[in-house]
Design a protein around this nucleic acid. Sequence first.
DNA 1: ATGAAAGCGCTAACAA
DNA 2: TTGTTAGCGCTTTCAT
Lengths: 342, 342
Amino acid sequence: MATIADVARRVGVSTTTVSRVINNFSLVNAETRKRVLVAIEELHYSPSIIARGMRGQKTRSIGVVIPDFRSYWYSELLNYIEIEARNHDYLAIICSTEIDPARELEYLNDLLQRQVDGLILCWYRGSTEKYAFLRNIIKRVPLVVMDQPATGFNASSVYTDGYKGIKKITKGLIAQGHQSVAMIVADKRYSEIARRYHGYRDAMRESGRNVDRTLIVEQDIGFNAGYDGARTLFSSARPTAIVTADDLTAIGVLQYCHDNSISVPKDVSVTGFDNILISGFVTPRLTTISQPAEDLARSAVSQIMRKIGNKRARNQEIVFEPKIILRESTTLKSSDLEKEAG
Amino acid sequence: MATIADVARRVGVSTTTVSRVINNFSLVNAETRKRVLVAIEELHYSPSIIARGMRGQKTRSIGVVIPDFRSYWYSELLNYIEIEARNHDYLAIICSTEIDPARELEYLNDLLQRQVDGLILCWYRGSTEKYAFLRNIIKRVPLVVMDQPATGFNASSVYTDGYKGIKKITKGLIAQGHQSVAMIVADKRYSEIARRYHGYRDAMRESGRNVDRTLIVEQDIGFNAGYDGARTLFSSARPTAIVTADDLTAIGVLQYCHDNSISVPKDVSVTGFDNILISGFVTPRLTTISQPAEDLARSAVSQIMRKIGNKRARNQEIVFEPKIILRESTTLKSSDLEKEAG
DNA sequence: ATGAAAGCGCTAACAA
DNA sequence: TTGTTAGCGCTTTCAT
């Protein structure tokens, strides 16, 4: 691995001069610059980011902490986060906690030790120690909370308004005449999950419905969660509509219905959340609530960049509008949605 | 950010002593050690991996280059790669090239500048310049090719035998009596795609079938590719079985069939490859060829570790057996598979 | 237009 | 058992 000294030696100049060339300073003789460039080429030299980081305290990298690679939603988000980071000439270092709150702290620490210049934290679960820890982190490095509001400490956040989305779709279902609308919901210790649940609850209440405990099933997230949740619901409450907090869960519901000859949407309507790619390719195609992945990613990265540029930049909370995507797993029409909107 | 010097100063010892404590050397007075530990705690000190890398030339990180976060298959692989890396106390730095061969080189270079201790390269597309580049890389850092054989240069590789899997399933379909078995295949410049295609071709030939050009559709990978490919096939060849090289494509086919009232598996059998999570949750559940994601990940990481431990360790090619997963998108039985096996 | 020297945070040789 | 010193590869004053 050639170093800057190797290049300098070969050309017969100082390392300073080489440094000036690679950093595009003008104050280098054109002739010298040319010879340096040639030597760099010949030696296949490329500067060590490690050494630069050591010196300049900047590593041109941002850490991204997500709960699970297999959630598919984050796969799509990651895609855009990476593109956006690269547009700024940054590297995204991505870590998955496998939904283990302890691992969140481990990774955050590791990333800090590696001197990332910024942090995007998705979907963390709060706790008092963690808030203390996070409050400490944000003194050192810009942090953006993604996919949920930043609760418990003061940071920027970027997310889609799941409360609003779920409330609207629930009201739409009620407006359409559904008598019993159920919800399968995940761990409410995640603040955005709680918000989505509240969207459902408030829609029910405002429409004068009981928020019947038998209509609410708490599950993990994922295909099996949806499948099992549907089983629970159909063994007692027998709802005519099921609202879920993510597409994977909804797809699990779809499968349970298919296996048990429950026709979707004739017997039961099913809705998801996220609008991941697959949801447009299942049978029936899934009605869901779309998050603007690209916008979310762009905003999150911009927030980081803004703070890197200006340490004292104020925190911002950027909330995107959810968009309901009407497909085949419901018989909802956009008019149903408008009827009860607000 | 507290440094080792801060800790040393506070305790009134040298940085060397602190270093010895954090690296668990025994030759430190128990009393001193205790005081150092306290100071570390108080100052929230944690060693800079950057500085350590600078000094020791080791960063405890491996670079992973994949084609696309949204392929879902890699999502599942990444999950295990990360776990495995963490088991060795390494960080996996993951980059997606978005299937852009030029970006493969960019990321490889970036990762090298960041002094990763090893590299896992998934699904690269060969070219003469690239081989030269890769040959250069492997002099400096251990590299494992994943998900396909290492062609064009000498490196370790870890992959599933797609040739065998596709050949076996194709023969099974033929044994079952299918007269026209089609294949939707992706860019054959990826060596593993070519191998999968050859599995189909050889199965056809060995069964005395023509490898009819109208039965082979070349497409990108993904849902839409499958949908479009199916349209092409049904507008002319009208096959009774469609073999694909990945689950996403197969799911696209499933949807085309559903939209056009072609019953699966009654009118046409459909098979995938990878056995990603979703393939067990579509309707009908997808018959596919499973890759052992966890084993693949574990082997790839082990290869790297072996080479990190011993620079001169020999390259290995580790090939896993594909496993056919019989589900609802075919009427295949395991007896059909055995009939023509070999 | 160029170079010498210091220093980023750490560890390893060597000395005490 | 502990400390001194040098140096990893780079950039940045400060000279010249």
